[in-house]
Every structure is written in C-alpha cells, then in structure tokens.
C-alpha cells in the first residue's frame, strides 16, 4: 500500500521526524504508538497527503506525490483516503447525514448514487434513525461513528485514524475498534495512532515512535 524511505521533517531547528522507514502492505492494520509530542500526528499527516513539507521519499501505491499539484492531492485524498480524527472534527451546524455526505460533494458521484452510499455507511456504523440529528445531539461514541462513516463513504483504500478512541471510554472504544476491524477484514488498509495499548491490540502490527524516530518494538521506546 505504501512505502516510506528515510523521511524527515523539521520545524525550524526542531527535528520532528528523522530517518523514518516504513512499509505497509495492502490490507494491513497498523497501529502507531508513542508518547505525546513524539511525532505521530506529524507522520500520519505526511502519509495522508495533508502535509507535503518533508524530506525523503514517500510512495503511495508506488507513486510519489511530492511534486503533485494541490488540486491533484485533493482529488487523491477524496478518492483514495479516509480520515478519522481524535476530536471527531464534525461540522457542528450540519446534520449527521450532511456530515457524512461531505466527501461526496467533491467527487463526481451521481446524486442518486450519493444517497445510496450515505445510507449504506449509516447502516454499517449503526446510526440508523440519527440522520437528521446534529452532532451536539449525539454521544461521543456516536459522533465518532459519524466520523468513521464520513471516512469510508467514498470507499477509500486506506483509512488513517489519529487517536480515534482518544476521547472515548473503554466500552465505547471497543465498539469503535470492532468497526475498524470489520473494515479491515473487508479489505481496507488501516493506519491508526493510539496511546492505548489495549486499542493497539486490535491491530496486526504495532510500531513505536519516540523523539521523531521509529522503532519496531516497544523496548527501544521505553529504554
């Protein structure tokens, strides 16, 4: 799915990422763990084509987007990627249905097809009957379901989730992780950042990050 060769990123003199090498296979479920401020979000922003300001090589499906135009990057994000953010990042003045519809506005789907797609993901995340509610009228777990539905409505190949359970209790976290597992089992590649080792256990593989460097086992992080 993707391959990272010696990626680095600096904010002025501060080194946020250094010598990152990583390969993720199609259909894999990868967890990224590490202490706060270690560079997890910075890394997945690069992987999600949200941040183009890095050194080194990043290939998504064997293609480099380093020199791609801003418009082309938007199209790739819309067609191939799906994001789930820690604080849900829903449009607070839009209904559940309208929130989930957002990625479809910018893709070339037909109107009838759009409705079908939105309804099918609403069913998938178990939000039937909440279509007209505002995010403020939902529980945290339900809000994250909306965010997941929005991330998958365009049928992306890769889902990138930055602490999807960060704001949820452990019971709700389990429900959300079950959705991710289902998605992964139906073929979607998932990369997920988390603090929680219980949550990381849902993943096939876990990598660790500390001070901007990537390690393959937990010991090297804790030393």
């Amino acid at each position: 799915m993707l391959k990272v060769n010696d990626i680095g990123k600096t904010y002025g003199k501060f080194i946020a990422l250094e010598n990152i090498d990583l390969e993720v296979a199609d259909g894999e479920f990868l967890a990224i763990m590490g202490p706060s401020g270690s560079g997890k979000s910075t890394l997945i922003n690069i992987l999600g084509l949200l941040d183009q300001n890095y050194t080194g090589e990043y290939l998504l499906k064997e293609k480099s987007y380093k020199d791609a135009s801003d418009n082309y990057l938007s199209k790739i994000r819309g067609d191939q990627l799906g994001f789930v953010f820690q604080n849900f990042k829903l449009l607070t003045t839009y209904s559940v249905y309208e929130n989930i519809e957002v990625p479809l506005i910018y893709s070339k789907q037909k109107q009838a097809n759009k409705r079908e797609l939105v309804e099918s993901v609403i069913k998938k995340v178990g939000l039937e009957g909440k279509e007209k509610n505002l995010p403020s009228e939902l529980s945290g777990g339900q809000q994250q379901r909306v965010a997941i539905a929005r991330a998958i409505v365009n049928r992306p190949n890769l889902i990138i989730a930055d602490e999807p359970t960060g704001a949820l209790d452990s019971k709700t976290s389990k429900e959300i992780m079950n959705i991710f597992t289902d998605l992964n089992e139906s073929g979607t590649t998932v990369i997920m950042v988390t603090h929680d080792s219980e949550v990381a256990e849902y993943a096939m593989r876990t990598v660790f990050i500390r001070d901007g460097r990537l390690y393959n086992d937990e010991k090297s992080v804790k030393k």
């Binding site: 999600g48 949200l50 801003d70 418009n71 938007s74 199209k75 994000r77 819309g78 067609d79 994001f83 990042k89 829903l90 449009l91 957002v102 990625p103 506005i105 910018y106 893709s107 929005r150 365009n154």
Partner: peptide, 15 residues
C-alpha cells in the same frame, strides 16, 4: 475548522 475538514475530504482550494 470547516475549511480544514472539507480540504481533508477532497475539496480543492478552488472549491
């Protein structure tokens, strides 16, 4: 925030 969300889900700067 809204702009960021729309951009992440496929909106171009032109959109």
């Amino acid at each position: 925030k809204e702009i960021g969300i729309r951009r992440a889900f496929g909106a171009t700067s032109g959109d």
